[in-house]
Amino acid sequence: MTNEHAIEAFGLVKRYGEKAALGGVDIVVPTGTVTAVLGPNGAGKTTAVRILSTLSVPTEGTATVAGFDVTTHPTEVRRRIGLAAQDATVDPLLTGHENLVMIGELHQLPRKQAKARATELLDQFALSDASSKVASAFSGGMRRRLDLAATLVARPQVLFLDEPTTGLDPRARNDLWEVLETLLGEGVTILLTTQYLEEADRLADDILVVDHGKVIAQGDARSLKRQVGGDNIGVTISDSSRLDDVVEILRRVTGADPIVDRPARTATAPTTGGVAGLAAVANALAEADQEVEDLSLRQPTLDEVFLTLTGLPLDGDDDPEPTPRTPEEVTR
């Protein structure tokens, strides 16, 4: 493969009637790298993936994947991509092995090769035991792993993962991250969508933050965090009457206005100082003889990223069910 960019999309617009699910998006992904599209429900993430994976035709704009135009040469694109849709689309009535063999055969592998590849992938995804079990009996995490294995059957050049870990419990999510991390060194180009900054941070070389069908920020995790003011230091104390002293300490050390949560006896302030900042706060608290229940340095949440980038709080981030905001969600 000689293309410098495995994905090149310019000015992608998708309108459903009056409403625009995508309002002019550029996506360029260098071959062999991972790009995350980060945003809340209804931001247009799925619409972008559907266009790039040939499932949906853009209203305006052009896109090239693995060297072929998605609207004029969809079959050539399909031969070179793997797609894991948001709701794992494994066939619930087929076994793990049958699912992978069918996908392999539809990727035009000879039956023998498709069977061998299916066995190999089930083994590598730790699904051998479930090989002859129907997919409807799988756990959520197993179904996602099978779905991911299915996308790899034909050794794609470009992989699309639409919210690969949404709806998984933390343990299954971590397992899947480990699986995805092993793929990073293989030379596959990956475009993944996610609602979790942590996920984008852990897996992606480049992050596109989208909201309401537009890219509102782009960069690697570090530069995005700089835009939102680095990490947060959080202090929780046991005696709520002394919270004002803690606020004073935080303001003095970080130079920023802390956010106070009185019922939780917690004060939080952004810092650019990293561990040194944390140490300074810890020393100041010790000198003031504060009884500290919890002291933490943590990444900003997606909510805080959004608050900084858009000035608006991110809605529905605690809601595990998709909250329809644009026709993208309605028509799916």
Binding site: M1, G67, R79, R80, H107, Q108, L109, P110, E120, L121, Q124, F125, L152, A154, R155, P156, Q157, E178, V179, T182, L183, E186, G187, V188
Partner: peptide, 17 residues
């Protein structure tokens, strides 16, 4: 984990059946 997912080059693609 070892997952063999080396991409297939254009020259190695399976022809349509």
């Amino acid at each position: 984990l070892v997952i063999d997912a080396a991409p297939r080059s254009d020259a190695d693609l399976h022809p349509p059946r």
